[in-house]
Design a binder for these strands. Structure first.
Lengths: 336, 336
DNA sequence: CTGTTAGCGCTTTCAC
DNA sequence: GTGAAAGCGCTAACAG
């Protein structure tokens, strides 16, 4: 492996001069600059980022921790983050917590020892608090994505889940539904809490009663347990519509309903939070509250880099994106 | 930041002893081991991977370069790679070439200077050759994913595209189709060539004529230009079925057909290579040749790590996965 | 404009 | 069992 010393010797200059040429720092005569460049070329020199990181105490590497790499919301977000990172000159280390605190912890340990310059962090939930505290203790800047974590004050990019949920429910009420079930993510996540609040507010504003029996809490990873649904459907007064708190939940619900011979929207309406990426383009079916996932990633990255480079001021910044209600064919008037 | 010297001083030992405790190397008395561990704990020591990488000349970091992070084939592959990397104790640096040679080059430069230990490389096409040569020159091990590159002998994980295509076309012929169009990826990619060969072979084996006018070459990124389709559909003897060489192409075709008022499979049948991830689960619609994308990633990672650790022998290894034909509702008998 | 020195945090080698 | 010295490749600080 060729080092700056090899090229220094070959060009009859000191290593320092070579370093200066590489980094365009300080004054160098045009002659030596050219000579050094030529030798670098000839020897096929590639700077050793590791050595540079060690002395500079910064790696120019950032971490992106997402909760599920197969969920189109997160992959779109990841693409936004990746594009922005590249544009800003940073490399991206990738992590996938799978909505699991244990994996998230592993990943945080990795972040700590890898000495990344900052982290784009989509937390698993409120209990991510201790992981974030570790980052704080080490002085590693981070930006929260999608979910807020009580106790943490940091830059954050999130969606307006309460308002999005309210509008989605409002749409169902407009269609004539009065019995609307909510299948929610874990209440350990801020988004689940906001979506719940939006749900309740929508009912209240339209003078509809709230029925606790219509609310089920599961996890965002999806729905495997059909008991959750059958409990709902065997109620004396069953729901005519379901609000799934995210796309994966909606997917699970559709599969279970299909399994028991019910179809959407003929038998029951279904709406959910988050769009399905290109699945929606192929077959525009599900009525959703879509979030600008790409912007979550790219804006988050921008906030993070500003913070790292000291251009972010002292106060945490909050970016809240509205959700876009896309009415498609999975929601229809109730059937008796 | 606390270093091994800090903990050495605190524990009244040398830095070397601390290092040995950390790495469980050499003989250490149980007493000092415990003492050192305790101090490490108290001071919240985290090893500095950068320094370690510099002296060890290896980063324990691997690169994964994929062609499109929003394509479910690649995201599933990425998940497989990520899971395997984690299991094997490696970190994953992420890159997205977007099927663009320029971006791929940027990424290769990044790989070179970052000193990753190896690369999982899904090449853009045959012209990736020069990028791979750069890796070879630097002695960076890599495993090719999905596409082979003429001139490169390396470990590779790929699908049996020829056979998959043949079976897909065979299925259409079974349904009664005789005029089948192929909308293919760039012939700069090995998969496009194999799919073309499979297409031709299927026709030949069933004694159907080959018509060059039915074959169109575009790119795997998708289909925006509807001229490609209208050319096909205004033929004197238009196709009754289309074989799209990947999922994104199929998506584009569906959208364009919808735009001109044609539906699948009522007006025309459609099959494609690669499944759609969870879109297929939600709405099992497209007949596909599905590849085990997760295994592409996880097996590729395994081959790579074996190669890095010198457990791979000298000969390049080739893994070829069969494709799984999943017949769904997008293919039906032709209509007159 | 260019060079020398020291050091980033760690591990390898060789002593003791 | 443990430690001292040297060095991985680079750059900041200072000197000239």
């Amino acid at each position: 492996m060729v080092t700056i010393y090899d090229i220094a010797k070959e060009a009859n200059v000191s290593a320092m001069t070579v370093s200066r040429v590489i980094n365009n720092k300080g004054r160098i005569s045009e002659a030596t600059r050219i000579k050094v460049r030529k030798v670098m070329e000839e020897l096929g020199y590639v700077p050793n980022t590791v050595a540079r990181s060690l002395v500079l105490q910064q790696t120019h590497m950032l971490s992106l921790l997402i909760a599920d790499i197969t969920n189109p919301f997160y992959t779109t977000l990841a693409r936004g983050a990746e594009d922005a990172a590249k544009r800003l000159g940073y490399k991206l280390l990738f992590g996938n917590s799978d909505e699991s605190m244990a994996k998230e912890k592993d990943y945080v340990d990795m972040i700590l020892s890898t000495r990344v310059d900052g982290v784009l962090f989509a937390p698993t939930g409120d209990t991510s608090l201790e992981h974030l505290r570790l980052l704080e203790k080490r002085g590693i800047p981070f930006v929260l994505l999608d979910r807020e974590v009580p106790g943490i004050k940091s830059d954050i990019v999130q969606g307006d889940s309460k308002e999005g949920a309210r509008k989605l429910i409002d749409h169902l009420i407009d269609l004539g539904h009065t019995r609307i079930a909510l299948i929610n993510g874990s209440s350990d996540t801020s988004t689940a809490r906001y979506r719940y609040l939006g749900y309740r507010e929508a009912l209240k504003l339209r003078d509809l009663p709230f029925d606790e029996a219509l609310v089920q809490e599961v996890t965002y990873r999806g729905l495997e347990d059909e008991a959750v649904l059958s409990t709902l459907l065997t109620l004396p007064n069953p729901p005519t519509a379901i609000f799934a708190a995210n796309n994966l939940l909606a997917l699970g619900i559709i599969k279970i309903l299909r399994g028991i011979g019910l179809s959407v929207p003929e038998d029951i309406s279904l709406v959910c939070y988050d769009d399905l990426g290109f699945a929606s383009e192929m077959n525009p079916f599900l009525t959703v509250a879509a979030q600008p996932a790409y912007q979550f990633g790219s804006m988050g990255m921008q906030l993070l880099v500003e913070r790292i480079q000291g251009n972010a001021g002292t106060n945490p910044r909050t970016l809240i994106f509205p959700s876009d209600i896309r009415v498609r064919s999975s929601s229809a008037p109730p059937v008796r």
